[in-house]
């Protein structure tokens, strides 16, 4: 019942969020992959700024204000911690001076990746992702692990929830204070059941695959075809145009930081 409710809420969440513009999962996947390649190639703040603005508009288009807000808040916290630590290190080791521009590029990259992955995660049903993966006709050794990973997202979410509930039932206090006071104990409490459950699941799935007669080198023929619409082509073309513009800005106006990560 719990797995069911988690999954249905997860799916309903995805479905409802995508009521405005229904895109094919493959176009969202293509944009994510393309953006991850381009963002690595561009190391100037100016080029990254183009990608950041474009990807930010993209994430806003899904109209999941709350989810986007939470994700950005989390990123901001991470950024603050990193800035403080980097600043601290620069004080202790003068050969590594603190440079705001240097630290900006990795965070812009993180934000851009978040901006392209969120629409994929929040607007596509898991089954659509699986179907999209099938449609790509990937090799068996890539498809099966990827599909199983995606297939078990709702189960894994349910497992995490149930482990946390079990701890509450036992009487453990799951506060931040407790986590800071007893980090190893908390890790043991959370991860031991998850680790063993994952091991058991992977073993059972391995056996199930064997018993279903699946094996490497099998020829895959999908029984369902997906609908690739004009708007999907438009989205991919737009991503290519943004990437071209970012590369142009990078080479024409870009100043690569000499310190920090590039």
């Amino acid at each position: 019942m719990q797995a069911s409710s988690v999954s249905s809420r997860f799916e309903a969440y995805a479905a409802e969020s995508d009521s405005s513009v229904k895109m094919d999962a493959r176009s969202r996947m293509a944009v994510s992959l393309f953006m991850s390649a381009v963002t690595v190639c561009i190391s100037s703040v100016e080029g990254q700024a183009v990608l950041l603005v474009a990807s930010f508009l993209y994430v806003l288009s899904i109209r999941r204000w709350k989810a986007v807000g939470i994700a950005y808040a989390f990123l901001a916290v991470m950024m603050c911690i990193a800035v403080l630590l980097t600043y601290g290190i620069s004080l202790l080791t003068p050969i590594m001076p603190f440079s705001p521009r240097g630290i900006a590029v990795p965070f812009m990259r993180s934000a851009e990746m978040m901006n392209v992955v969120l629409p994929l995660a929040l607007t596509c049903r898991i089954q659509e992702l699986l179907t999209a993966l099938k449609g790509l006709r990937l090799p068996f050794c890539i498809y099966i692990p990827a599909a199983v990973m995606i297939r078990f997202i709702p189960t894994f979410m349910h497992d995490i929830r149930q482990v946390a509930e079990t701890l509450k039932i036992r009487g453990y206090s799951l506060t931040f204070g407790e986590m800071f006071r007893h980090p190893l104990m908390m890790l043991r409490l959370m991860f031991t059941p998850l680790l063993f459950r994952s091991l058991r699941t992977s073993e059972e799935l391995g056996m199930a695959a064997e018993l279903k007669g699946l094996e490497s080198g099998s020829c895959f023929v999908p029984f369902r075809t997906q609908q690739w619409a004009k708007r999907d082509t438009a989205l991919v073309l737009l991503a290519v145009a943004v990437a071209a513009l970012a590369l142009y800005v990078h080479f024409k106006f870009g100043t690569v930081p000499t310190r920090g990560m590039r």
């Binding site: 999954s7 059972e204 799935l205 029984f223």
Partner: peptide
């Protein structure tokens, strides 16, 4: 634990 797909139809076809 034996299912590889999330939908019933996809599982039968898998």
């Amino acid at each position: 634990q034996q299912f590889f797909a999330l939908g019933v139809e996809d599982e039968l076809a898998f």
